[in-house]
Nucleic acid binder design. Structure first.
Lengths: 204, 204
DNA sequence: AAAAAAACCGACCAAGTGGTCGGTAAGAAA
DNA sequence: TTTCTTACCGACCACTTGGTCGGTTTTTTT
């Protein structure tokens, strides 16, 4: 933690409100004034703390978005025993949280990835890094699952991780369109079906 | 086809260029002037043909995007025999096309869904409609596949359709980040694995 | 309490934004 | 050829955008 308390407090408030609005309205569709109005702060305050809108957003990615993804999707999986049970629980929990969020606009990471893909390489890079950590994390637990006898040895951990991430990104996108309860239920059923097809069969 | 040839030609040119830029840069990040500059046309021409930017975009959805999704994802599946083979081929073809597209910015439908979700209900509605047709289409072929003995009877067609769409949306998003060849290969392997687990077993 | 540094204010700027409107080419109808 | 309609032009408008800067308040240091 930095010592500079007031500074950090104001910056943090701006970042929190910034993420809220960027998430809700999109980056390009949200102006700095929108954020400042919400906080009753001035342009001067903003540009005292941040160099530009882009710099501001990157700080949000590194401070808030990273943390969100970690606590929701990465930490719940790290170092656990049974990969499939763990992934099942983690995804279920993530979907349930989204489902009960009245103001759900989708998966933070993929929303911004969609908005910046091919348009802002700098920001894309930071977002991509987060997704990579997630992927590595999944691959790790799957590999460990093989040696621990949970996961069939012939499966391709990287491929499974890719498929899991893909399906998660997609379902979160669909859920925003409404009917999220039904969708997440259907999704979890199929996910279980998919995972079940990869458990290590008992040696007879 | 409308008779008004010149009218239709100009409108069409605007729509094509519009979709190109909206797809590449995003809707909110693309100005009407951007499009007009590309075509050496004036504001007057634009507002002679379209009422507003939103009206313009909706016409693009209804004319171009619908058609793109249909020809790539819906028609190749309609009325075919073996559902899993058909879906496999269709997805593989779609991914391959994307993979070889140097200027790939992701899945048109889901990109715009992400951009407008919760921000423009009008436009979201039209996009949602397309996705619904796709879903119904998948469910239909799966159900037919049951009676034809291709698909295990116990599976939930709606659930499978949702899962397929989710994973497709997700993988297309990931592919933009690069390494698309490897990603689409991994994806297809897992898709096949998933589909294979649902084939109707031979009655002994 | 005085001085210095940190935090914040808000008027201002140039460069856009979506959209309007009176006018003008060009092709079809008379 | 004249008339009329369709298609298009581009200056203009009100408003918003990201960003600057000289100045003021608040906090910390001395």
């Amino acid at each position: 933690m930095d010592k500079n308390l007031k500074r950090m407090a104001t910056m943090h408030r701006m970042q929190v409100t910034g993420l809220e609005l960027f998430y809700k309205q999109g980056y390009y569709n949200t102006s700095i004034d929108d954020i400042l109005k919400e906080l009753s702060l001035s342009k001067g305050a903003f540009y005292y703390h941040f160099q530009s809108k882009e710099d501001f957003f990157i700080s949000i990615v590194q401070n808030l978005i990273v943390q969100k993804v970690y606590s929701m999707l990465i930490e719940p999986i790290e170092g656990k025993e049974d990969p499939f049970r763990t992934i099942d629980k983690c995804f279920e929990n993530a979907l349930e949280t989204a489902e009960h969020n009245e103001y759900d606009y989708g998966f933070v990471l993929s929303n911004f990835m969609a908005e910046f893909n091919g348009r802002n390489e700098e920001i894309s890079k930071y977002l991509r890094d987060i997704y990579r950590v997630w992927e590595v994390n999944l691959v790790t637990i799957l590999q460990k699952g093989k040696t621990d006898g949970f996961v069939a040895r012939h499966i391709d951990s990287e491929g499974v991780a890719t498929y899991l991430i893909s399906s998660f990104i997609g379902i979160r996108m669909l859920m925003v369109e409404g009917n999220s309860k039904m969708l997440s239920y259907q999704f979890m059923q199929q996910l279980r079906h998919y995972l079940a097809s990869m458990v290590q069969q008992e040696l007879v």
